[in-house]
Design a protein around this nucleic acid. Structure first.
Lengths: 240, 240
DNA sequence: CGCATCAAATTGATATACTAGTATTCGCGG
DNA sequence: CCGCGAATACTAGTATATCAATTTGATGCG
């Protein structure tokens, strides 16, 4: 294996729009997205047995792209692959949730501090847009769309801070928390609280008060920790 | 797709030794590990062209496991796959390094605080072992082994804090930084400084002084930021 | 001499076929 | 009736073959 350090003229060197050029949408990606959302939305509950063959037939594709999608999901901890045996939607690893919250607090605390330092009026406007949308959705009690906007809010903050990579990490970490939360969110008034807390974060960012922004974010993240103990008795099969 | 929430009796429910039981060494894993270490050690330099077919022949396997390994590497940003064109060892994304450092500071700062709070004498002894090994390796000028022990030190702290998952995140983040550092470490005396700084961190943890531990860690992480500007002129082909 | 176009080769993507390992089940013996 | 073991059936892992798309180099025309 010799080192052939040559250049690939056309596509390389971009770096910025990397993900755009290299890896146009492939069927494996489509299947991944589908399974991902199905698992996150609990349409495929934890413990459900998956079979490469069955899924391939359902999507009318070969096993190969299905397999690639499953491998990616297993890296994210969403499915467990038992070689030569079977694949199941992973049970929510209760033990990992506290750690996931720690990661979120650490990373989002840092991110929101930075965002508070560099936010422009336009950035604040973006946050306001998301918050007002959330307010509407909370009134309509549309939990699913509300979740999406919740993601958008946190992603926007990462964007403002200039840390897109951190958002990528957070997404993978959030997944397990979100799965647990989907079982618990129908708590009345919770969405209104979230909107209120988002407002506090927004205000701190707008005031360029990094310390206050961090405090508001940490408080917000503490509030969204799912009550795992309760969930364990309600849905014992879903956790481990 | 119906929900068949059945149990897979034998292997499941473990959760703890998950990675041990599910995913025994497969050839794809072996190839991944091999390529991973080759890229990290710069035996495969950034920009090197890879070919599934060639690699497959070299390992005497089919293209399938090679492909799986390359896909995993591309997710970690270690190779860039240009569809229908070619695969190359990724150039170190200079733009992403500052963000990677931010992530490390955030996560390792949090981790070392926690470690300082909960460390037992046995934990301190573990750190001492690693540090003394590093001291020896620095004297021998064995940069490669030194790097491994450096990883062991940071991993040990994550272990003490009880955050194994955070270490997993850090590993993926560290990769790009480490690749750049491999080109820069031969700076004389750098290893001695690292040993010294590790000592300061160890002392703060032993004293259960969380604030001091965090400060020492942040200082340490600031010091290991590779001088990207200098590297760009020395190895222009390796960065983008 | 330069640019554009076309064709051939290279490589990734997908489909299909085969292998090997695992868990369950059924039967036999205690 | 229970426990142990071998055989069977099923799954993921691997190999091979085919397809499609992009790139590149060469050729011809301006």
């Amino acid at each position: 294996m010799q080192a052939a350090v040559v250049s690939i003229p056309a596509a390389i060197g971009s770096g910025a729009e990397r993900s755009a050029k290299l890896r146009r949408a492939t069927t494996a990606d489509a299947i991944f997205e589908r399974l991902y959302s199905d698992i996150l939305a609990l349409r495929m509950p934890p413990g459900m047995v998956l079979q490469e063959k069955k899924i391939a037939e359902e999507f009318n594709v070969s096993r190969t792209p299905v397999r690639e999608a499953l491998l990616r999901l297993s890296e994210g901890g969403l499915v467990d692959i038992y070689p030569q045996s079977g694949t199941v939607v992973s049970r929510v690893p209760v033990a990992a949730i506290p750690e996931a919250v720690v990661v979120r607090k650490s990373l989002e605390g840092t991110t929101v501090e930075r965002a508070a330092e560099v936010a422009t009026p336009a950035d604040i406007a973006r946050l306001d847009t998301v918050i007002s949308r959330q307010r509407s959705l909370a009134a309509l009690n549309d939990t699913s769309a509300f979740h999406e906007e919740d993601e958008a809010f946190h992603e926007a903050i990462a964007g403002i801070a200039g840390y897109p990579g951190i958002w990528g990490i957070l997404k993978t970490v959030k997944v397990q928390i979100d799965r647990a939360r989907r079982l618990t969110l129908p708590v009345l008034g919770r969405m209104d609280n979230v909107v209120y807390e988002h407002g506090l974060i927004r205000d701190a960012i707008a005031a360029h008060d990094a310390a206050a922004a961090r405090a508001a974010m940490l408080h917000h993240l503490s509030a969204v920790i799912p009550d795992v103990a309760e969930l364990r008795v309600r849905y014992p099969d879903y956790f481990c």
